[in-house]
Each structure stands twice: as structure tokens, then as C-alpha cells.
């Protein structure tokens, strides 16, 4: 009888320990996602801050390309206003495309391309795009880890018990969008 109670107690302790460990693992992986998201936020902020400067510099050499400037400015305003990974990713894609157009235009203005200020902005923008891409990659990897822990048995049981919610990926859909930032900066 005593033995039976002891075994039962051990089993109970084992189960509680296992639940605690699984729960902690899920929480840690969720915290990592939040940290990764904060990093994306920082990098996007940086990108948004660069754009007015870039537009103004290009304006100085190519004033009549007003349509493109407006497009970039509108895309930036939209990217600043939206929230949540899926919507934000879409808005940022729009911004990337508008920026791509702007940079394509600069190809036609040799004086602009020789402008020291513009070249510095270009390096700064290339760096920022890489930072965004890196932060995005890390965020998606963190979501993938969390998702795996949530769905794979046995942690899936704990995830169900404590209601660990779904997290969205930060996607970049098209291949062109992926490549756009890198083309003109090397």
C-alpha cells in the first residue's frame, strides 16, 4: 500500500514537472517571437525614417517625376498606419515596390548618382533593407519553432491546455519583391 502511494506520488511529481517544463518552453518561445517582432518594428521604423530624406534628394535632380514621389509617400504612410504581421507585410511589400520604381528612375540621372549625399543614402538604405530582411528571417524562424512546439505531440497537449494562440508569419510573397532591394546597391 505504501509502495503504491509512493509510486503514485512519483508519477504525479513527474507529470507536474513535465507540464511545467513544456509550459516554460512554450512561453520562452513566445517571448522570443515578441522580441523578434520588436526588432522588425525597429528596423521598419528606420526604413520609414530614411524615405523622406531619399525622396527629397531625388527631387532635387528629378523634380518632374512627381507621380513616383507621391506613390512612395503614400505607400510609406500606409505602412506606418497598419498593424499586425500579415497586413504590415503587405503594406511593406507595396513600399518596397514603390521604392524599386524610385530607384529605377535614379538610373536616368547620372548627376544624382554621383551625388555624395545620395550615395550615402543608398548605402544606408541597402543596409536597412538587409536589416529588415534579417529581422524578418529571425522572426519567421521564431514563429516556426513556436508553431512546431505547439503542434507536435506531446507539447501540443500542454499548448491546448493553456491556450497558446496561433502566431502569424511575416511573409514576403513574390520573388521580385525579395530581389528588388538587392539589385541596385551592390
Amino acid at each position: 500500500m505504501l509502495w503504491f502511494a509512493l509510486v503514485l506520488l512519483l508519477l504525479l511529481v513527474g507529470i507536474v514537472g513535465w507540464v511545467v517544463a513544456g509550459y516554460n518552453r512554450l512561453v520562452r518561445s513566445r517571448v522570443r517571437i515578441d522580441e523578434a517582432w520588436a526588432q522588425i518594428d525597429t528596423q521598419l521604423q528606420r526604413r520609414h525614417d530614411l524615405i523622406p530624406n531619399l525622396v527629397n534628394t531625388v527631387k532635387g535632380y528629378a523634380a518632374h517625376e512627381r507621380e513616383t514621389f507621391e506613390e512612395v509617400t503614400a505607400a510609406r504612410a500606409k505602412a506606418i498606419s497598419v498593424q499586425g504581421p500579415a497586413d504590415l507585410a503587405e503594406a511593406e511589400n507595396g513600399l518596397t515596390q514603390a521604392l524599386g520604381k524610385l530607384l529605377a528612375i535614379t538610373e536616368n540621372y547620372p548627376e544624382l548618382k554621383a551625388d555624395q549625399n545620395f550615395r550615402q543614402l543608398q548605402e544606408e538604405l541597402a543596409h536597412t533593407e538587409n536589416m529588415v530582411a534579417g529581422a524578418r528571417g529571425h522572426y519567421n524562424a521564431s514563429v516556426r519553432d513556436y508553431d512546431t512546439a505547439r503542434k507536435v505531440f506531446p507539447t501540443s497537449v500542454i499548448a491546448g491546455m493553456f491556450n497558446f494562440e496561433d502566431r502569424e508569419y511575416f511573409e514576403v510573397e513574390t520573388v521580385e519583391v525579395r530581389q528588388a532591394p538587392n539589385v541596385s546597391f551592390e
Partner: peptide
């Protein structure tokens, strides 16, 4: 920085 942000160790 680009490497560290991709590694998530900023």
C-alpha cells in the same frame, strides 16, 4: 549588425 539581427542576438 546585419548578421546579428538575422541571428536574433542584437
Amino acid at each position: 549588425d546585419e548578421v546579428c539581427v538575422a541571428a536574433g542576438i542584437m
